[in-house]
Write a protein that binds this DNA or RNA. Structure first.
Lengths: 343, 343
DNA sequence: CTGAAAGCGCTTACAG
DNA sequence: CTGAAAGCGCTTACAG
């Protein structure tokens, strides 16, 4: 679409054509003063005529306020974060904020780049939906006095806790292993991508705690933890073949649904019957769990609640309200076909 | 994180503390004049000391340039758009642009709201990744002289074609039906969400053209086109049960992969063997096609190429370069298990 | 190599 | 109910 030759109208152009001052135009637009009906109509007519659109940059600069929030996610292409984003955006929109979404790919350089850009754009606050790869960035944000809330992480900067919302990952693993125990699995395993963040570490901690609690001996437990970070489904696919080499596994606990999907794909290719030969349970409860064959038993993260709480906390921080700066949410077990033995 | 009590430093603060003029600080930061090494170092030291971050709003206002681009997608929670977004963002970043991502949910009000917000924020251009629900908005954007490129749509505003990139949807359907014909399907059907946009309409057109070309009689063809727009997988799930009522269908052509997934889910629940009882082919080639059971034969959209072409075209429009304002990309057939009969 | 000054397009006390 | 004027935090010719 070609740029029209006519220049963009400014507020002063509207004022001139309407025969009023610029201040009056501003008041009409923002309803910030009681302008007479006659003048109001005249101004509005000119605004339409000139296709006038206020320049938000100028407004924000003057007001020292932008009503914008930065949102950092690691991977747009994950059902989990997609749901969080939707909820965060709509909640913020209701509260009059615009969201700037940034996708970091877990790349430490991109994390820095985006946060710098957001700060330069004078966002009112930043909501980070995962534990940053580069923990130093928390300190940088702190030093600049930027309002910040983090989901799924817990950090202390200079003795001050970063406001955060977490799901109880320890209990998530406990729920998973309890279920596996209840369906009678004797030989079990824990499959995970590298434990590069707090959530994954805690799931592993919870797993270790759970096997003690349910009396699994070390010889009945195998760990498959990848060394390198890459596509989760592929990681699962590779782990799947390792599991098959240990022919006596009864149940797999995967640290994420996507990992479980990869494992399932491998099992399926080798004619392994799920759950009769091997049961499998995931983590996250992304929408796909209901679509896959077999449908996937998993630990549900209350994503809407996480998002809502995070937004609430951030708005409190912005408004200087001293609310709780930490909130823990409990996960739950969703039982589906992948652990429902027929016999 | 609490707001630190110290105020944010401005350029003038840096200037004072470094004992130079504001202009000099600006030149150091932007390397816009040959400042002596000694002064440069002094200024940079103060910048660090004060944690100074330039205010982009002020800069952009003065320069009348933002290096930002608005990106509109209808649904972040779709593998298709997620891939497009990734490619668009990274391509734009290489070219020095920041992307503002907006998720419209196919909601005509949100479309307007976001576009207005983007224009007020003075983006250099807008890239829309789907046919807008509200076609009038194209005209509004045109009237404001905003640089625009659209993917997967083709519109003319006031006699001027909106710059756009399309995939050849007619040929996509031809490829699909040709394949269905080749595997020997006699009774076939076309399943689709409502034909609310150009891409879906063209896929339907292509389907009609294809059945003629391959000699299917009307009595061998059934249409399942939903009346209401809702979750695609659920739509597919519902269409799936309708297809099963017509017990003699040999092959299904679904207008999107997600729709196909819903159909597959229903078939599976009823013990229908895919592809031996009924073959199925989707459209889009989202990553999930390789994961699902059975893996899904589909028409591949070259998403990276679409994204790259779109960005390229938008940058051309912004720079006033008179490139081609329309580009058509050819789809291809990806054969997987869902149409690979064993016998 | 460095600085004084105008100006980007708005908002907002304040005066009348 | 309306307007004159200062100022938000930068950039950029221009002068020296």
């Amino acid at each position: 679409m070609k740029i029209k030759s006519s220049k963009k109208a400014k507020m002063v152009d509207v004022a001139k054509l309407a025969g009023v001052s610029q201040a009056t135009v501003s008041h009409v637009i923002n309803e910030s003063a009681p302008i007479s009906e006659e003048v109001t109509e005249r101004v509005q007519k000119v605004i339409k005529e000139l296709n006038y659109v206020p320049n938000a940059l100028a407004k924000w600069l003057k007001q020292n306020k932008t009503n914008t929030i930065g949102l950092l996610i690691p991977d747009i292409d994950s059902g989990y974060y997609a749901e969080i984003v939707k909820e965060v955006e709509s909640t913020l929109r209701e509260r009059g904020f615009i969201t700037f979404l940034c996708n970091t790919f877990y790349d430490s350089n991109l994390e820095k780049l985006y946060i710098k850009a957001l700060i330069q754009q004078s966002v009112e606050g930043i909501l980070i939906c995962y534990g940053l790869v580069n923990k130093n960035v928390y300190k940088e944000i702190y030093n600049l006095g930027i309002n910040l809330v983090v989901l799924d992480d817990k950090e202390v900067v200079k003795g001050v806790q970063v406001p955060s919302v977490e799901v109880n990952n320890i209990n998530g693993s406990l729920l998973a292993i309890k279920h596996i125990y209840n369906i009678g699995a004797k030989k079990i395993c824990f499959a995970s991508e590298p434990l590069f963040n707090r959530a994954l570490k805690l799931r592993y901690e919870g797993f270790k705690k759970a096997i003690q609690e349910y009396g699994y001996k070390d010889s009945d437990v195998t760990l498959y933890i990848e060394n390198n970070q890459y596509n989760k489904i592929e990681m699962g696919y590779n782990i799947g073949s390792q599991i098959l080499l240990d022919s006596n596994t009864d149940a797999v606990f995967a640290s994420s649904d996507n990992l479980a999907f990869g494992i399932i794909k491998r099992f399926r290719e080798h004619g392994v019957n799920i759950p009769d030969d091997i049961a499998i349970i995931g983590y996250d409860d992304i929408p796909l769990c209901k679509i896959i064959t077999p449908t996937l038993t998993t630990i549900s993260q209350p994503k809407k609640l996480i998002a809502k709480k995070g937004v609430e906390m951030l708005l409190d921080v912005i408004n200087g309200e001293s609310s709780n700066l930490y909130f823990m949410i409990e996960p739950s077990l969703i039982i589906r076909e992948s652990t429902m033995k027929r016999a």
